Amino acid sequence: MKWGFVASLGLLAPVNALLRFPCAQLVIDRRDPLVNPGSAPSPHIHQILGGNAFNTTMDPSKDIPAEATCTSCEFSEDFSNYWTAILYFKAKNGTYKRVTQLPNAGFNGVNGGMTVYYMQDGLYNFQQTSKVTAFKPGFRMYIGDVNARTKSQAERFRQLTFTCLQNIGTRDPQILDFPSTPCPGGIMTAVRFPTCWDGVNLDSPDHMAHMAYPESGTFETGGPCPASHPVRMPQLFYEVIWDTRPFNNKDDWPEDGSQPFVWSFGDGTGYANHGDYIFGWKDDSLQRAMDSPCYVSCPTLKTQSAEAMNKCTVDRVVKEEIDDWVTTLPGGHVASYRK
């Protein structure tokens, strides 16, 4: 399905519809307070978005909205932090170049970043009427496997995908590994988190066990939550558009014809696509939005301009080259492929 079609439907849809908004880039840094709290540098580099209370440890006992003074997201009550790894291009000579991000359809002027969704029902269901319980203060989660290098390993997770964009509106087909041909509009990565909570734990040792997928199918299928994780929560979903267009000359690609893109931790397959989340909405603002769903313009939430979003940044803690060509990825990683 094409986003242009989806967007046009959204303009005609009633108030009940999915929550979709942009977040500008807060910082690019080698920090990961979820998986590697207290470590600076963390093993690989990330793009981080959201509230400027972001720090190396992100103590779960802290009140994030009280500590933040701005957010790079459109809704100014959302001080959550969202992050993913960075995409790199590997040239024929073995050097690497960071791939920048493009704003999504409808969000011109936003500095890269990503699009964030919170949904009660599936993405293409504009009658978002199901009841969900919003995430709680202190909640955090992770999805994906940084060590995955095979399709079977990636299939453990539902809907961590790539789309080779023909234009900004392309949404299908979605695949589990990097596209093998140049993509005219860039590459979009999608990260969909599990939606069933155990109702007790705000986190778990692997940052995943407190969450589960529906018993049958995906969130879009409307399957029930398992008895072990009975609380239905919003579908949190990231879309990141990587501007791979400057690297579409196949003469610069590896001589063996393999695709040239690699995650910042060295994965050259794409199977290790993953994402991190730390909840930080102010007061009951997210629950209000879920109880009175909206599309883009949300009367229950405060919004801010792209200019205000772009101004909300934090300084990098780890000082290393992130814009020039490099011989190894930050952290010393090199491209690795199927096991």
Rank of each mutant, 00 (worst) to 15 (best):
W3F: 14
W3I: 07
L11W: 15
L12K: 13
A13M: 11
L18M: 05
L18I: 06
F21M: 14
P22Y: 04
A24K: 02
A24G: 11
Q25P: 01
I28Y: 15
P33N: 01
G38D: 15
A40C: 12
H46C: 04
G51L: 04
N52H: 13
F54A: 08
T56F: 11
M58Y: 13
S61R: 12
S61E: 10
P65Y: 14
A66L: 09
E67N: 14
E67K: 12
A68R: 09
A68Y: 13
T71G: 08
D78N: 15
A85C: 14
F89P: 15
F89C: 08
N93Q: 11
G94D: 07
T95S: 12
T95I: 08
Y96E: 07
K97T: 06
L102D: 04
A105M: 08
L123R: 07
N125Y: 06
Q127E: 15
T133I: 07
A134D: 00
F135W: 13
F135Y: 09
K136S: 13
P137I: 01
P137K: 06
F139K: 10
F139N: 13
F139V: 09
R140G: 02
M141W: 09
D145I: 00
V146C: 06
R149P: 14
T150E: 13
K151V: 07
E155S: 13
R156Q: 12
L160M: 03
T161S: 06
F162V: 05
N167T: 11
I168G: 14
R171N: 14
R171H: 15
P173T: 03
D177A: 13
P179A: 11
P182T: 08
C183R: 05
C183L: 00
T195R: 00
C196A: 07
V200L: 02
D203H: 08
H207W: 07
A209C: 04
M211L: 00
Y213H: 11
S216D: 04
G217C: 00
G217E: 01
F219T: 04
F219W: 06
H229T: 08
H229M: 02
P230T: 06
R232G: 03
M233S: 07
L236P: 03
F237R: 02
E239D: 12
I241S: 05
I241E: 05
I241R: 02
W242H: 14
W242L: 09
W242Y: 15
D243C: 02
P246M: 10
F247R: 02
D251P: 14
G257L: 02
G257F: 03
S258E: 05
S258C: 07
P260F: 03
F261E: 05
G266Q: 13
T269H: 01
G270P: 14
Y271C: 07
A272H: 01
N273I: 06
H274S: 01
D276C: 04
D276F: 02
Y277F: 15
D283M: 02
Q287L: 01
Q287E: 05
D291N: 13
D291K: 11
D291H: 12
V296P: 08
P299Y: 11
K302V: 05
E307F: 10
E307P: 00
M309H: 11
K311D: 13
C312D: 03
T313E: 11
D315V: 04
D315Q: 08
D315I: 05
V317Q: 02
V318A: 03
V318L: 02
E320D: 11
T327Y: 12
Y337R: 07
K339F: 06
